[in-house]
């Protein structure tokens, strides 16, 4: 399109209600498209430009900062009721560029790009010198803590056998020396008390996810593991696009991802959390 009068953008205040409306839609978009990790909440609107759009409507080019909450992406809790992850817990921020179309008074997302990054170690330690920092999710101590916690949860659980879906965050705590982990599990078609080979268990078609928090503390001669899991409402089976030529839809099945419990599970102090359906 040729440049000319009338094709420039209009400036809008970042705290203008119209800008906020576009930004809140953008945050909803982020949270409804998250596949893993935690829901985010709006922290600050950085920039906004409003461009005319042909043949009608306007496009909001908007930059926003978000902060991670403590609600997992699969948690049905509305983000408005979720706490923001505090600096002491090693906060994570999101930096997002959006293009949001406003047409006939309705907003819709045209483009989204977000990067998230944890606060710097220096900044966390400035606020709280003894606070544990985020640990790599593939750290052997983290992996061990998750395996021990899940085995302990399944050992005390009379219902389905739960498989690991995702390790969401982890911290190596200096005092007392322990590993704190948060992870997601999902129910399988196996009964936890009867599982002999976890590799043969399959996730249920109607997914039932759980979110667990656990702490593994080393002690003389063994380890203590405390784990609490909250199981969310079942997720309805979504119709999957079928290749041409197939008539009968079949529910998508996630291949089982075996998680073998540690061979010699230490004596565990287990807090099995409420199975909230």
């Amino acid at each position: 399109a040729p440049h000319g009068p009338g094709l420039g953008y209009r400036e809008l205040n970042c705290d203008d209600p119209e800008t906020e409306q576009a930004a809140l839609l953008a945050v909803d978009y982020i949270n409804s498209h998250l596949l893993r990790g935690y829901k985010h909440t709006l922290n600050q609107i950085d920039k906004v430009k409003v461009w005319p759009r042909r043949p009608m409507g306007e496009v909001f080019e908007i930059e926003i900062d978000t902060l991670e909450t403590t609600c997992h992406a699969l948690d049905p809790t509305p983000v408005a009721n979720c706490s923001v992850r505090q600096l002491q817990e090693h906060a994570v921020e999101g930096d997002c560029d959006f293009r949001v179309l406003k047409q006939d008074g309705q907003f819709s997302v045209l483009f989204a790009k977000c990067d998230s990054s944890p606060d710097s170690a220096e900044d966390v330690l400035k606020v709280c010198p003894d606070c544990p920092l985020l640990a790599p999710l593939n750290d052997t101590r983290v992996v061990h803590a998750v395996e021990a916690a899940l085995a302990a949860f399944n050992a005390r659980n009379n219902g389905s056998y739960y498989q690991l879906v995702e390790v969401s965050r982890a911290q190596l705590v200096p005092f007392p020396v322990s590993t704190y982990v948060e992870f997601v599990v999902a129910a399988t078609d196996c009964v936890s008390k009867e599982v002999t080979d976890p590799a043969k268990c399959n996730l249920l078609a109607e997914k039932q996810y759980g979110f667990c928090k656990a702490r593994l503390t080393g002690k003389f001669g063994g380890e203590d593991v405390a784990v609490t899991c909250v199981v969310f409402q079942t997720q309805p089976v979504l119709p999957q696009p079928q290749p041409e030529g197939t008539n009968s839809p079949t529910p998508a099945e996630t291949p089982a991802k075996p998680l073998s419990p540690p061979a010699n599970l230490p004596a565990a102090t287990v807090v099995v959390g409420p199975l909230v359906a």
Partner: peptide, 27 residues
């Protein structure tokens, strides 16, 4: 030569439309 005196403009607070307010804390 007639010179118009300059009109003094009162210095008010500069309005910065962006970035907007911080809702929680800045990292």
């Amino acid at each position: 030569t007639v010179v118009q005196p300059g009109v003094a403009v009162a210095a008010g607070p500069v309005v910065r439309p962006c970035p907007g307010r911080i809702r929680h804390f800045k990292i």
